[in-house]
Amino acid sequence: MDLLTIKNLKIHYQLKNGVFKAVDGVDLEVKKGQTIGLVGESGCGKSTLVKGIMQVMSKNAFFADGDIEYNGESMLAMSESKRRGILWKEISMIPQASMDSMNPVYPVVDAFVEIMTLKGGKSKKEAILRAEELFELVGIDKSRIKDYPHQFSGGMKQRVAIALALCLDPKIIIADEPVTALDVIVQHQVLTMLNRLKNELDLTIILITHDISVVAQTCDDLAVMYAGKIAEKGSVLEVLRDPKHPYSMGLSNAFPDLLKNEKLISIEGSVPDLAHNIEGCRFVSRCPFAIDQCHTLEPVVTEYENNRSAACHRAPEYRDLQQLAEEASVWNKVTTT
């Protein structure tokens, strides 16, 4: 049974002149004990999706359709008190730019005490002892709990943020771009630590990133998101080695193997404006393989072997498309035609 299930979820923003459809029909299954990656460029709706799960959306955001189920029960239908008992206690989040989320005028232990006393029902003494345990768990000396945020390096701040997310012993951790602002060495250290914590604490992790190399190092399964929808899903190895959707192919080409002296092949253009109705495939203006029906008919998600799925009219031809996708000239034609 899936621990967390997202069904046809639509999260829209009410604007002065219309509605911005940031998440527009997402289906996603998260199994207990797995690390699932959600990848896509900025503007694809990744952060809106996870904020919807945690229900920390902005005031002009609303659920237009769909559902979020935790252990088979609708989180959108349950009472506010019951939902509060799940969020942050059983599902916690490492927010984007978490290194800058701590109050600079208070020692970091205050954040731990606040969460554990207000949400976890612990005494201040118990909270401090737990903070010391968590610091040592993420590789920081417990004597540093009374330090201020500016006294930590970027990598150590990220470790503190991870420790904070573990305060109430959650089952699921949502990590929103957890290593974006870190150098590659510190990135590796943080990701290795997340893998260790997953195994030691039996965690389930949802990792949001735009960096395929991060997903390849950390995740079991992968969902590629584009313009508010899931373009492709499957195991990390299968999606990265054998992508069926042109967007997945383009993302893979954008992270070349430097040891093979490969050239970076970028995807020209940008995500379409989701404040307007879009006919056909959302990737059509950037896709070098678009055919007539791509402009008029939205592709449906098609299931394949090994729990693979993709939403592309030409997915059955993916082998031929993969060979073409490796040529920079194919992608350049999109902007010259």
Rank of each mutant, 00 (worst) to 15 (best):
G155Y: 00
R196N: 09
S74Y: 04
Q151F: 05
S143I: 14
I278S: 05
D242Y: 14
M193T: 04
T192K: 13
D292A: 13
A161C: 10
G280R: 05
E90C: 06
A223V: 06
F62W: 08
I212C: 09
A61V: 07
D257R: 11
V284A: 12
M75K: 06
G121I: 06
D110Y: 09
G228Q: 00
N71K: 15
E305Q: 14
S248D: 00
N8C: 07
Q217R: 14
E126G: 08
S74E: 09
T337D: 11
K119M: 14
D100N: 14
Q217N: 12
Q14M: 14
A290Q: 06
M249K: 01
D257L: 09
S81G: 07
I230S: 01
Q189S: 04
P243Q: 04
V39G: 03
C44H: 03
I212S: 08
A111K: 08
G139Y: 06
A111G: 11
S58Y: 11
D147Q: 15
K333M: 15
G234K: 02
A325H: 01
K51Y: 12
A64T: 02
V113H: 03
L324M: 15
R319D: 12
V39A: 07
V56T: 14
L9I: 06
T204I: 07
V39Y: 00
D147F: 10
Q96C: 06
L3Q: 10
A161E: 00
I128H: 09
I291Y: 11
Y148Q: 11
E317H: 09
A165H: 02
Q158I: 00
D183I: 06
G234M: 03
N103T: 07
E305H: 10
I145S: 04
V236E: 04
A275G: 15
V138P: 01
L259K: 14
L197D: 09
V26S: 00
G66V: 05
H210C: 12
G121T: 06
E133W: 03
S58T: 13
V224G: 00
C287I: 05
I174R: 10
V19D: 02
S153P: 02
A165I: 05
T192A: 14
D320R: 13
N199Y: 07
E80N: 12
V26T: 02
L137I: 13
C312Y: 00
A181T: 08
R84W: 02
D169W: 08
A254N: 12
I11Y: 01
R282W: 01
G139M: 08
V300A: 15
L258Q: 10
T218C: 03
V23R: 04
E326C: 13
I205R: 01
K82I: 11
K89R: 15
F255M: 15
C294E: 04
D220W: 01
A64I: 02
G250R: 00
P299F: 00
K142H: 08
D273A: 04
